[in-house]
Amino acid sequence: MLDRPTTIAPDILEVSDVGKIYQASNGPVEALRSVNLTIRKGEFVCLLGASGCGKSTLLRIVAGFETATMGSVTMYGFPVDKPGPDRGMVFQDYALFPWLTVRDNIGFGPKHRRLATKLVSELTDKFMAMVGLTAFADRYPHQLSGGMKQRVAIARVLSNDTDVLLMDEPFGALDALTRSKLQEELVEIWRTTGLTVIFVTHSVEEAVMLADRVIVMSAGPGRIDCEIEVDLPRPRDVASPEFNALRREVTQKLTSHIAGSRGKAADS
């Protein structure tokens, strides 16, 4: 079986009643309202929604880049108030350090935790091999393709012994073939490492392809609309009837509230 054991895993991350209000030049903007979310250890969760639904804001609050205006985020029961190596982030535009080689990018975290040089190079080699970039160890980021850059970004987080992998539309800038290849690789990495993944996307297919649980979010203000468990066996087949049924269901949930909010806006 490719699936993880389905025994109840302990909770790792708790988002309780989180709200976020930005002070924009034309007055306050409510980006998130009373978001509640519990992530279990080893779970693969997708935050799905149209742009402006606050999914990236929620992720940035979990990462610790931004603080919630209301409510709290706790990890292992401790409040999250700043970024830390336990929550590694992968961005859509990779954000690799252009002045470091593939090897040094991946080794950045271990090196700065002052691990022994030998251990740093062991960790680096291990994760470089995991994403299949050993042959490109001494290349600089500008010499890599988009897919390779994103592999480096993933390995950079993994080498840092992270617990939760936060991904903000990581494959959004890639072509369709590379994207599906990387989706496969990500699932494989998730399966072998036992990571917890929170993955932000606006693609229904991507969410159904990857997630154990899809959190559908809606805008104005950003909130959680509903949750859908995806219990299809892996590897998932995009062409199978079960997959398509689920995709249709998720799409309906997503579009119904968009239509609903549009109707409401028209009323008011």
Binding site: F65, P83, P85, D93, A95, F108, H112, V157, N160
Partner: peptide
């Protein structure tokens, strides 16, 4: 983004 990444990697 570079600072964000470095901070998630635990840089002081």
């Amino acid at each position: 983004a570079y600072y964000d990444v470095a901070r998630t990697l635990g840089a002081k």
